[in-house]
């Protein structure tokens, strides 16, 4: 074969696989008449193919068939009862979770007694708040009042005192 070995190899393979078009097959045959190595390669490829075709696909021994047919039974046994199979365990775990979730989502409806008690507690709370509010209001009033009166009387006193001192200085 020549420098196009790789191409010829591909052509030979295609020929054996029945994938080579008629024109390409004719080209190959023509080339083979002038190229002894190529011709030999084609012949060898055919011979190999022939030997390959004569190799039967070995049949599996009967013992294997028996082992393979036993697989479903063995797998079911090793998997244990159906309740312990992963998909069922998961499904069973989901059930209580779903029940809890549904309970949490349910609106809470109180009884008559609970409502009466709540109303009573609310009335006490409001009364307390009213009282506290009144006390706080008085506290604020007195604090603000003191501060305001201090601010006013303090500044007036300081102004009078300053004025007196000015007069005294003038007299002197």
């Amino acid at each position: 074969m020549n420098k196009y070995d790789e191409n010829w190899e591909q052509q030979i393979n295609a020929l054996l696989d029945g994938e080579l078009g008629k024109a390409d097959a004719d080209d190959l045959k023509t080339a083979a008449t002038d190229d002894r190595d190529l011709a030999r390669a084609i012949v060898e490829a055919y011979q190999l193919q022939q030997v390959m075709d004569d190799i039967p696909v070995e049949r599996a021994p009967a013992s294997l068939g028996k082992r393979l047919r036993a697989i479903p039974r063995e797998q079911r046994r090793t998997a244990g009862p159906w309740l312990f199979q992963p998909r069922w365990v998961t499904a069973l775990a989901v059930v209580p979770l779903a029940i809890i979730a549904l309970n949490l989502m349910q609106p809470d409806t109180p009884s008559e007694g609970e409502i009466a008690k709540a109303r009573q507690e609310l009335a006490i709370a409001f009364a307390y708040l009213d009282k506290a509010g009144a006390m706080t209001g008085r506290g604020i009033e007195s604090t603000v009042g003191d501060t305001m009166s201090d601010a006013i009387t303090g500044s007036v006193n300081r102004a009078i005192k300053l004025q007196n001192e000015t007069y005294k200085e003038k007299e002197v």
């Binding site: 696909v57 070995e58 049949r59 599996a60 021994p61 294997l64 082992r67 393979l68 697989i71």
Partner: peptide, 27 residues
Amino acid sequence: QHQAWSLARYLLKDAQEAEDAVQDAFV
């Protein structure tokens, strides 16, 4: 089974081990 066994037989060159390999595949 025959094709799987034939392939395993060629690859492992050991009939017993080929049977084991095919059994594993079918499991």
